[in-house]
């Protein structure tokens, strides 16, 4: 029960973080592009809605879903006996498969093979970068623990 509550809180926090990050990003873009009104997403996305308010609500839903997605997939790293590589690959696959339709719906990039390829490449590179950092930190951690073990055995 305690665990369930913790997870629920984690997911709720994820959804609200998604809304926060999404809102601030949209606000920054609206300011940078000197928009007359707040643009929750690309103008093409906003034009699908009858009112501006509807577009904001739809964007809020997308931001919350993205937040939920990433806080939910973070749980993959808590699976005890999966290797870090397996966790990273599964996290990548789930995030890519669920995040891509949301990004397309939000109109973050045009749907054509060039953009999709570029988007996929960026997605893969981010994960490769994180995996390199991750594996280096694992090596450093093991080295440090081994030094502590040697120190302990010398004292025994």
């Amino acid at each position: 029960m305690k665990n369930f509550k913790r997870r629920l809180l984690q997911l709720t926090f994820g959804a609200f973080s998604g809304i926060g990050i999404g809102f601030l990003t949209a606000l920054t873009f609206s300011t940078v592009f000197k928009a007359a009104n707040f643009l929750p997403s690309a103008p093409q996305f906003v034009s699908h809605f009858a009112t501006h308010l509807q577009a904001i609500w739809a964007s809020t839903f997308i931001w919350a879903t993205i937040g939920l997605l990433f806080s939910g997939t973070a749980l993959i790293f808590e699976i005890e006996f999966w290797s870090s590589l397996k966790q990273t690959i599964v996290h990548f696959l789930i995030s890519y498969l669920l995040f891509t339709p949301l990004a397309i719906w939000a109109g973050w990039f045009p749907v054509n093979s060039l953009w999709l390829l570029l988007y996929t490449l960026i997605f893969v590179l981010i994960y490769v970068f994180f995996w390199i950092i991750f594996s280096q930190s694992i090596k450093a951690q093991v080295q440090q623990i081994n030094q502590l073990i040697s120190k302990r055995s010398r004292n025994c």
């Binding site: 870090s84 397996k86 966790q87 991750f134 594996s135 073990i149 040697s150």
Partner: peptide, 16 residues
Amino acid sequence: NLNFLANLSASPSGVY
């Protein structure tokens, strides 16, 4: 038991 712990190693896939 820590007294029987020799060392730690990590596999290339990141298993301790």
